[in-house]
Simulated assay, not measured.
Amino acid sequence: MIKSVSYKRHRFPPEIIAHAVWLYFRFPLSLRLVEEMLLERGIRVSYETIRRWALKFGPDYTRRVRRKTPSCRNIWYLDEVVVTISGQKHWLWRAIDQDGYVLDEILQSRRDTKAAKRLLRRLLKKQGCLPRRMITDKLGSYAAARRQIMPAVEHRSHKGLNNRAENSHLPLRRRERAMQGFRSPGGLQRFVSGFSAVRNLFVTPRSRRSAVATRLHRLNAIAAWKSAACIAQ
């Protein structure tokens, strides 16, 4: 059972802390911009304090956020995006499903079969079942890893079919620009864990296209966020 979030020895109310962390993970804002937005509401807090809040409370909140139930009917879209940290190239391997829900992300220094196999093993452990189909670009490492990890799964390899995964990188790219890059591999891995969990909570299912349904989904997501932060609604 996940314990409730403790705000002991913090002089700011939980509502302010949770709101600041939500702003930071939900929108492509730098810490200084979050500081400015809070100041406009009469809340004087430094960007460094917001950074500490994100580091301390972000993992607690995201562990408590409701998660999508794994389904064997899911289609996995896999792709990797290059991230330069301190002059060195790293690859963020990502997997999403047909609804745009981020299933997993892992930063690795390799772009080969070993790295692809690690991603597939993590996905199988988290999802608990095989997907209906796997879609990737033409990188040969995916095919080699699939043959060894889940040979019975259908695999479609085509750049055009994988646009959904490639488009899912855009929110992270916008955040990368706002933050002027990431400082360390560990920092990036910690950030994407919270960033994607919040994005998953607010992403609108493809079946809900009307304005009313979208608005209702967002209101439910906000309520779920407050519940995860242990804030009275």
Rank of each mutant, 00 (worst) to 15 (best):
R121A: 02
R111C: 09
S109L: 09
L92I: 02
I96Y: 14
K114V: 13
L123M: 13
W91I: 02
S86F: 07
Q98S: 09
I106Y: 11
L119E: 08
D112H: 03
E105S: 05
R110E: 15
L119Y: 11
I85E: 04
G87L: 00
A116F: 10
L120K: 03
S109Y: 11
D97M: 03
T113L: 04
K89S: 12
R110M: 12
D104C: 01
T113E: 14
D104F: 07
I106A: 03
T113K: 15
W91Y: 15
L92M: 12
A95H: 13
V82C: 03
L120Q: 09
K114H: 12
Q98R: 03
T113W: 11
R121V: 04
V83Q: 05
D112N: 14
D112C: 04
G87V: 01
T113P: 10
W91E: 02
Q108A: 08
H90T: 07
A95P: 15
R111K: 09
I85V: 06
D104N: 09
Q108G: 11
L103Q: 05
I96T: 07
H90S: 11
I106R: 09
V82K: 06
V83R: 08
H90L: 09
V102Q: 04
V83E: 05
Q108D: 15
E105Y: 00
A115S: 15
I85N: 04
K117R: 13
A116C: 08
Q88F: 10
R110Y: 09
S109M: 12
D99Y: 08
I106Q: 14
I96Q: 08
D104M: 05
T113S: 10
R110H: 15
R122V: 01
L123C: 07
R110K: 11
I106D: 14
K89N: 15
D104H: 12
D99M: 00
W91L: 05
S86T: 05
D104V: 06
R94W: 07
A95F: 04
L119K: 01
A116V: 06
L107T: 06
D99F: 10
D104Q: 02
V83F: 07
I96R: 02
Y101V: 07
L123K: 01
W91R: 06
L123G: 02
H90I: 08
L103S: 06
D112L: 00
K117E: 10
W91C: 02
R118P: 13
V102H: 07
G100W: 08
V102C: 14
R110C: 10
I85R: 02
R94C: 09
T113H: 09
K117C: 01
T84N: 08
R121N: 03
I96M: 01
Q98M: 05
D112A: 00
R111Y: 11
L123T: 06
L107K: 00
E105L: 01
S109C: 06
T113D: 09
R122L: 03
S86P: 04
W91F: 15
S109K: 11
V83P: 13
L123R: 02
K114A: 09
W93Q: 06
Q98E: 14
Q108N: 11
L120P: 05
R118E: 15
V102T: 14
L107F: 13
L123N: 11
V82S: 06
W93H: 12
W93G: 09
E105D: 10
V102G: 02
S109T: 11
Q98C: 03
A115W: 08
A116W: 13
A95K: 06
R94Q: 14
D97S: 00
V83G: 05
D104I: 00
L107R: 02
G87F: 04
L92F: 07
Y101K: 04
L92V: 07
G87H: 03
Q108S: 12
